[in-house]
Nucleic acid binder design. Structure first.
Length: 273
DNA sequence: CGGGCGGCCTGGAGGC
DNA sequence: TGCCTCCAGGCCGCCC
Protein backbone atom coordinates (compact mmCIF):
# COMPACT_ATOMS: atom_id res chain seq x y z
CA UNK A 1 0.00 0.00 0.00
CA UNK A 2 1.94 2.90 1.28
CA UNK A 3 4.94 4.78 0.06
CA UNK A 4 5.71 8.34 1.09
CA UNK A 5 2.75 9.95 -0.74
CA UNK A 6 0.19 7.57 0.73
CA UNK A 7 1.49 8.07 4.27
CA UNK A 8 1.53 11.84 3.76
CA UNK A 9 -2.01 11.82 2.37
CA UNK A 10 -3.10 9.74 5.34
CA UNK A 11 -1.38 12.14 7.72
CA UNK A 12 -3.06 15.20 6.20
CA UNK A 13 -6.47 13.53 6.26
CA UNK A 14 -6.11 12.72 9.95
CA UNK A 15 -4.98 16.17 11.10
CA UNK A 16 -8.44 17.77 11.30
CA UNK A 17 -10.03 14.75 12.94
CA UNK A 18 -7.34 13.70 15.41
CA UNK A 19 -5.67 16.85 16.74
CA UNK A 20 -7.00 17.60 20.19
CA UNK A 21 -8.59 14.20 20.68
CA UNK A 22 -7.65 12.16 23.70
CA UNK A 23 -6.76 8.48 23.49
CA UNK A 24 -9.08 7.13 26.14
CA UNK A 25 -8.27 3.48 25.84
CA UNK A 26 -6.30 1.10 23.65
CA UNK A 27 -7.34 -2.36 22.69
CA UNK A 28 -4.81 -4.77 21.22
CA UNK A 29 -6.62 -7.57 19.45
CA UNK A 30 -3.64 -9.25 17.88
CA UNK A 31 -0.06 -8.51 18.85
CA UNK A 32 1.62 -10.24 15.90
CA UNK A 33 2.93 -7.56 13.53
CA UNK A 34 6.43 -7.16 12.07
CA UNK A 35 7.43 -6.89 15.71
CA UNK A 36 5.00 -7.96 18.42
CA UNK A 37 3.02 -5.00 19.75
CA UNK A 38 4.58 -4.14 23.12
CA UNK A 39 2.61 -5.09 26.22
CA UNK A 40 3.27 -1.59 27.53
CA UNK A 41 1.68 0.18 24.55
CA UNK A 42 -1.76 0.78 26.07
CA UNK A 43 -0.29 2.05 29.33
CA UNK A 44 2.07 4.42 27.53
CA UNK A 45 -0.50 6.10 25.29
CA UNK A 46 -3.79 5.93 27.21
CA UNK A 47 -5.14 9.20 28.60
CA UNK A 48 -2.95 11.40 26.44
CA UNK A 49 -4.12 14.10 24.08
CA UNK A 50 -2.99 14.09 20.44
CA UNK A 51 -0.93 17.21 19.80
CA UNK A 52 0.60 16.82 16.36
CA UNK A 53 0.89 14.50 13.37
CA UNK A 54 4.19 14.18 11.58
CA UNK A 55 5.74 11.84 9.04
CA UNK A 56 9.27 10.51 8.77
CA UNK A 57 9.97 8.31 5.75
CA UNK A 58 6.99 5.91 5.63
CA UNK A 59 6.34 6.19 9.35
CA UNK A 60 3.36 8.15 10.66
CA UNK A 61 4.25 9.90 13.92
CA UNK A 62 1.45 10.75 16.31
CA UNK A 63 2.79 13.09 18.98
CA UNK A 64 0.96 12.82 22.28
CA UNK A 65 1.12 15.13 25.24
CA UNK A 66 3.83 14.28 27.71
CA UNK A 67 6.53 13.65 25.08
CA UNK A 68 5.30 10.30 23.87
CA UNK A 69 5.15 9.55 20.15
CA UNK A 70 2.97 6.83 18.78
CA UNK A 71 4.71 5.42 15.71
CA UNK A 72 2.70 3.60 13.03
CA UNK A 73 4.09 1.88 9.95
CA UNK A 74 1.67 0.33 7.49
CA UNK A 75 3.98 -2.22 5.89
CA UNK A 76 2.41 -3.51 2.68
CA UNK A 77 -1.20 -3.96 3.64
CA UNK A 78 -1.80 -1.78 6.69
CA UNK A 79 -4.73 0.63 6.84
CA UNK A 80 -5.52 3.19 9.47
CA UNK A 81 -9.11 4.42 9.47
CA UNK A 82 -11.48 6.20 11.77
CA UNK A 83 -14.72 4.41 12.61
CA UNK A 84 -17.36 4.59 15.32
CA UNK A 85 -16.16 3.16 18.61
CA UNK A 86 -18.76 0.41 18.57
CA UNK A 87 -18.12 -0.71 14.97
CA UNK A 88 -17.61 -4.45 14.60
CA UNK A 89 -14.06 -5.68 14.83
CA UNK A 90 -12.76 -6.31 11.34
CA UNK A 91 -10.81 -9.35 10.34
CA UNK A 92 -7.09 -8.53 10.85
CA UNK A 93 -7.82 -5.51 12.99
CA UNK A 94 -4.76 -5.50 15.26
CA UNK A 95 -5.04 -2.41 17.41
CA UNK A 96 -7.84 0.02 18.20
CA UNK A 97 -7.38 3.45 19.78
CA UNK A 98 -10.60 4.64 21.39
CA UNK A 99 -10.90 8.41 21.24
CA UNK A 100 -12.66 10.98 23.39
CA UNK A 101 -15.12 11.79 20.59
CA UNK A 102 -16.56 8.28 20.68
CA UNK A 103 -14.75 7.08 17.59
CA UNK A 104 -11.92 4.66 17.21
CA UNK A 105 -8.78 4.68 15.12
CA UNK A 106 -8.47 1.21 13.69
CA UNK A 107 -5.27 -0.43 12.45
CA UNK A 108 -5.96 -3.30 10.12
CA UNK A 109 -3.08 -5.21 8.55
CA UNK A 110 -3.71 -8.61 6.95
CA UNK A 111 -0.10 -9.30 5.98
CA UNK A 112 1.28 -8.11 9.30
CA UNK A 113 4.32 -6.28 7.95
CA UNK A 114 3.29 -3.15 9.80
CA UNK A 115 4.48 -1.81 13.12
CA UNK A 116 3.15 0.08 16.13
CA UNK A 117 5.42 1.55 18.80
CA UNK A 118 5.26 4.12 21.55
CA UNK A 119 8.53 5.98 22.05
CA UNK A 120 9.73 8.95 24.05
CA UNK A 121 9.52 11.79 21.52
CA UNK A 122 13.03 12.97 22.26
CA UNK A 123 14.49 9.58 21.45
CA UNK A 124 12.94 9.06 18.01
CA UNK A 125 16.05 10.02 16.08
CA UNK A 126 18.24 7.57 17.90
CA UNK A 127 15.78 4.69 17.88
CA UNK A 128 16.95 1.77 15.79
CA UNK A 129 14.04 2.18 13.36
CA UNK A 130 15.06 5.74 12.51
CA UNK A 131 18.78 5.97 13.13
CA UNK A 132 19.88 4.86 9.69
CA UNK A 133 17.28 6.71 7.63
CA UNK A 134 18.47 8.99 4.87
CA UNK A 135 17.19 12.34 3.67
CA UNK A 136 13.55 13.31 3.11
CA UNK A 137 13.11 13.79 -0.65
CA UNK A 138 10.71 16.71 -0.27
CA UNK A 139 12.89 18.58 2.21
CA UNK A 140 15.50 21.20 1.43
CA UNK A 141 18.85 19.58 0.92
CA UNK A 142 17.67 16.79 -1.35
CA UNK A 143 19.19 17.39 -4.75
CA UNK A 144 21.38 15.93 -7.45
CA UNK A 145 24.58 16.77 -5.62
CA UNK A 146 23.44 14.82 -2.58
CA UNK A 147 22.60 11.77 -4.71
CA UNK A 148 25.88 11.99 -6.58
CA UNK A 149 27.82 12.19 -3.32
CA UNK A 150 25.94 9.22 -1.85
CA UNK A 151 26.66 7.20 -4.98
CA UNK A 152 30.42 7.67 -4.74
CA UNK A 153 32.17 4.31 -4.56
CA UNK A 154 29.01 2.35 -5.31
CA UNK A 155 28.00 0.34 -8.34
CA UNK A 156 24.41 -0.67 -7.57
CA UNK A 157 21.72 -0.34 -10.22
CA UNK A 158 20.04 3.03 -9.81
CA UNK A 159 16.65 1.43 -9.09
CA UNK A 160 18.03 -0.39 -6.02
CA UNK A 161 19.82 2.79 -4.99
CA UNK A 162 16.53 4.72 -4.97
CA UNK A 163 14.93 2.05 -2.79
CA UNK A 164 17.77 2.21 -0.25
CA UNK A 165 16.34 4.11 2.72
CA UNK A 166 19.80 4.92 4.00
CA UNK A 167 20.18 7.26 1.02
CA UNK A 168 16.73 8.73 0.51
CA UNK A 169 13.54 7.68 2.27
CA UNK A 170 9.97 7.20 1.17
CA UNK A 171 10.58 6.07 -2.40
CA UNK A 172 9.10 2.61 -2.84
CA UNK A 173 8.62 0.28 -5.75
CA UNK A 174 5.98 2.29 -7.62
CA UNK A 175 7.60 5.71 -7.41
CA UNK A 176 11.11 4.43 -8.11
CA UNK A 177 9.93 3.15 -11.50
CA UNK A 178 7.96 6.32 -12.14
CA UNK A 179 10.79 8.70 -11.23
CA UNK A 180 13.30 6.84 -13.41
CA UNK A 181 10.88 7.00 -16.31
CA UNK A 182 10.35 10.72 -15.85
CA UNK A 183 14.12 11.25 -15.68
CA UNK A 184 14.76 9.04 -18.72
CA UNK A 185 17.19 6.75 -16.89
CA UNK A 186 17.35 2.98 -17.34
CA UNK A 187 16.65 1.21 -14.02
CA UNK A 188 19.64 -1.11 -14.46
CA UNK A 189 22.13 1.68 -15.03
CA UNK A 190 24.91 1.57 -12.44
CA UNK A 191 25.09 4.60 -10.16
CA UNK A 192 28.79 4.72 -11.01
CA UNK A 193 27.83 5.78 -14.53
CA UNK A 194 25.41 8.62 -13.94
CA UNK A 195 26.42 12.17 -14.83
CA UNK A 196 25.87 15.16 -12.57
CA UNK A 197 23.28 16.44 -14.99
CA UNK A 198 21.35 13.19 -14.78
CA UNK A 199 21.54 13.13 -10.98
CA UNK A 200 20.03 16.59 -11.06
CA UNK A 201 17.25 15.42 -13.33
CA UNK A 202 16.59 12.35 -11.19
CA UNK A 203 16.33 14.35 -7.97
CA UNK A 204 13.85 16.66 -9.68
CA UNK A 205 11.87 13.70 -11.02
CA UNK A 206 11.63 12.10 -7.56
CA UNK A 207 10.28 15.32 -6.09
CA UNK A 208 7.91 15.85 -8.99
CA UNK A 209 6.46 12.33 -8.89
CA UNK A 210 6.03 12.31 -5.11
CA UNK A 211 4.43 15.73 -4.93
CA UNK A 212 2.01 15.05 -7.78
CA UNK A 213 1.02 11.79 -6.12
CA UNK A 214 0.34 13.61 -2.85
CA UNK A 215 -1.75 16.23 -4.67
CA UNK A 216 -3.81 13.48 -6.25
CA UNK A 217 -4.47 11.66 -3.02
CA UNK A 218 -1.93 8.87 -3.45
CA UNK A 219 -2.06 5.70 -5.55
CA UNK A 220 -4.88 3.25 -4.94
CA UNK A 221 -4.02 -0.02 -6.68
CA UNK A 222 -6.00 -2.27 -4.41
CA UNK A 223 -7.14 -0.79 -1.22
CA UNK A 224 -5.33 2.36 -0.13
CA UNK A 225 -7.55 4.98 1.45
CA UNK A 226 -6.91 7.99 3.63
CA UNK A 227 -8.13 8.13 7.21
CA UNK A 228 -11.65 9.00 6.10
CA UNK A 229 -11.82 6.09 3.65
CA UNK A 230 -11.20 8.11 0.47
CA UNK A 231 -9.14 6.43 -2.28
CA UNK A 232 -6.43 8.25 -4.24
CA UNK A 233 -6.34 8.65 -7.99
CA UNK A 234 -2.68 8.91 -8.94
CA UNK A 235 -2.94 5.39 -10.41
CA UNK A 236 -4.41 6.94 -13.56
CA UNK A 237 -1.24 9.04 -13.89
CA UNK A 238 1.19 6.13 -13.59
CA UNK A 239 3.35 6.11 -16.71
CA UNK A 240 4.97 2.69 -16.40
CA UNK A 241 4.15 0.94 -13.13
CA UNK A 242 1.97 -2.12 -13.73
CA UNK A 243 1.68 -1.23 -17.42
CA UNK A 244 3.71 -4.03 -18.98
CA UNK A 245 3.07 -4.21 -22.74
CA UNK A 246 1.19 -0.94 -22.92
CA UNK A 247 2.61 1.85 -25.09
CA UNK A 248 4.83 4.39 -23.37
CA UNK A 249 2.98 7.68 -22.95
CA UNK A 250 5.98 9.53 -24.35
CA UNK A 251 7.39 7.38 -27.15
CA UNK A 252 4.86 4.55 -27.63
CA UNK A 253 7.39 1.73 -27.13
CA UNK A 254 5.84 -1.13 -25.16
CA UNK A 255 6.58 -0.87 -21.44
CA UNK A 256 8.76 -3.69 -20.11
CA UNK A 257 8.74 -5.51 -16.80
CA UNK A 258 12.00 -6.83 -15.37
CA UNK A 259 12.92 -8.23 -11.95
CA UNK A 260 15.55 -6.55 -9.77
CA UNK A 261 16.32 -7.82 -6.27
CA UNK A 262 13.18 -9.94 -6.49
CA UNK A 263 10.91 -7.01 -7.22
CA UNK A 264 9.20 -5.88 -10.41
CA UNK A 265 10.58 -2.87 -12.22
CA UNK A 266 8.69 -1.26 -15.09
CA UNK A 267 10.40 0.94 -17.66
CA UNK A 268 10.29 2.11 -21.24
CA UNK A 269 13.12 0.75 -23.40
CA UNK A 270 12.57 3.61 -25.86
CA UNK A 271 13.11 6.60 -23.63
CA UNK A 272 15.10 5.24 -20.67
CA UNK A 273 18.80 4.77 -21.34
C1' DC B 1 32.00 -3.91 2.46
C1' DG B 2 28.03 -3.54 -0.86
C1' DG B 3 24.57 -5.87 -2.93
C1' DG B 4 21.49 -9.75 -3.86
C1' DC B 5 18.30 -12.85 -2.06
C1' DG B 6 14.97 -15.17 0.84
C1' DG B 7 11.80 -14.76 4.50
C1' DC B 8 8.18 -12.72 6.96
C1' DC B 9 2.39 -13.04 6.05
C1' DT B 10 -2.44 -13.18 3.82
C1' DG B 11 -5.30 -12.78 -0.08
C1' DG B 12 -6.54 -11.96 -4.83
C1' DA B 13 -6.03 -13.25 -9.63
C1' DG B 14 -5.54 -16.40 -13.10
C1' DG B 15 -4.67 -21.14 -15.08
C1' DC B 16 -6.45 -25.71 -15.39
C1' DT C 1 -16.55 -25.52 -7.87
C1' DG C 2 -11.65 -26.25 -6.21
C1' DC C 3 -6.82 -26.45 -6.18
C1' DC C 4 -2.53 -24.75 -7.64
C1' DT C 5 0.92 -21.15 -8.55
C1' DC C 6 2.27 -16.56 -8.76
C1' DC C 7 2.28 -12.02 -7.30
C1' DA C 8 1.73 -7.81 -4.22
C1' DG C 9 2.89 -0.79 -2.42
C1' DG C 10 8.22 -2.91 2.97
C1' DC C 11 11.81 -4.16 5.52
C1' DC C 12 15.44 -6.95 7.71
C1' DG C 13 19.05 -10.20 8.19
C1' DC C 14 21.98 -13.46 6.16
C1' DC C 15 25.28 -14.67 2.88
C1' DC C 16 28.73 -14.21 -0.79
Amino acid sequence: MPELPEVEVLRRSLVPILIGERVERVRVWKRALREPVSRGLARRVSGRRIERLRRRAKYLLIDLEGDVTLVVHLGMSGRLTLVMANADRQLHEHVAFYLSSGRRLRLRDPRRFGLVLALPSARLETDRHFRHLGVEPLADGFDGALLAAAAAGRRAPVKSFLLDGRIVVGVGNIYASEALHLAGIHPRRSVARISDQRWHRLAGAVREVLSSAIEQGGTTLNDFTDGAGEPGYFQVSLAVYDREGEPCVRCCSPVRRIVQSNRSTFYCPGCQR
